[in-house]
């Protein structure tokens, strides 16, 4: 077992012991089932709504909650270790700084991934049993996009962690980034569109700077590639690249949002005194 794998295992172990992983999984299961139930009540029926509508209902909620949880987890890790002194003990082992960073990141991805898969998995199974399997593939694709989004924000959180001296500082920075990408970004784009008359091309480029928007568009492409739901940016991308090409570009952008921040975090961690 390499040191990075040992660290990943340790991170997952700690997440499981800390009970947040179970709480996160239960939260997602309850949300998914709740939205499915509420959806049908609104239509005057009883029982569980199918995958397609449930997935659409979950989208906005997930795009808000997953970045928050992932940012806080990613930012707290190394910054918290620095504060408690655990980082000194870990870095005194025969592990490189990049190895330590990647090991912890892998463990965090596994922890969030496990919670997400468990939560959505339990809900998905119950929905499938009650309402049939129509739309199940879209539901699975949506869960995969949620995992990628979690990976991107865990990586951004890792950059915050290596730049922060203490957990509180890291938490504050993580919350600011979350607010900027989930709330401010949208408002800024709307403002740009209205005031400066920015076209779909400008908005499409701007959108690539925010993993939440990338994941939203990708999920919409998977759910319903109709132009009405996709909006002008989605319309432009599908017109230029086709549905598969647009999805490929957005997937690549999400992966870049994982690899880029991780590379930046590793470069910062290697170049500075870590303690």
């Amino acid at each position: 077992m390499t040191p990075a794998v040992a660290l990943a295992r340790h991170e997952l172990h700690q997440a499981a012991r800390g009970r947040w992983l179970v709480a996160f999984a239960i939260g997602f299961a309850v949300l998914a089932l709740g939205l499915s139930l509420v959806g049908l009540r609104v239509e005057g029926a009883a029982g569980l709504e199918g995958y397609g509508r449930t997935t659409a209902s979950l989208l906005n909620l997930s795009l808000t909650l997953i970045p928050l949880v992932a940012l806080l987890l990613g930012a707290g890790g190394i910054a918290g270790d620095r504060e408690t002194g655990a980082l000194e003990v870990l870095l005194a082992q025969p592990v490189t700084r990049t190895g330590l960073l990647l090991g912890r990141f892998a463990g965090q991805v596994a922890a969030v991934g496990l919670a997400t898969v468990l939560g959505f998995g339990v809900a998905g199974t119950l929905i499938g049993l009650a309402a049939g399997s129509s739309g199940a593939a879209q539901y699975l694709a949506y869960v995969a996009i949620a995992l990628l989004l979690a990976g991107a924000y865990l990586a951004i959180g890792t950059v915050v962690a290596v730049c922060s001296r203490a957990r509180l500082q890291a938490t504050a920075a993580a919350l600011a980034i979350w607010f900027a990408s989930v709330v401010l970004f949208d408002l800024t784009l709307i403002g740009l569109g209205a005031a400066a008359g920015a076209g779909a091309r400008v908005l499409a480029v701007a959108m690539l700077f925010n993993p939440v928007e990338i994941a939203r568009l990708l999920a919409l492409l998977v759910l319903d590639p109709g132009l009405e739901m996709l909006g002008p940016v989605g319309g432009l991308l599908t017109a230029r690249l086709g549905g598969a090409g647009a999805a490929g570009l957005l997937l690549a952008a999400l992966f870049a949002w994982i690899a880029g921040p991780l590379a930046l975090a590793a470069a910062i961690f290697e170049s500075r005194d870590p303690l």
């Binding site: 012991r17 800390g18 408690t84 000194e88 003990v89 005194a92 592990v95």
Partner: peptide, 19 residues
């Protein structure tokens, strides 16, 4: 990494994973 493989270190206040 190779140097640290030869060294065991006990800091002043060892922060071992408490869980």
């Amino acid at each position: 990494r190779a140097a640290r493989a030869l060294v065991g270190y006990v800091p002043q206040r060892p922060a071992l994973p408490g869980e």
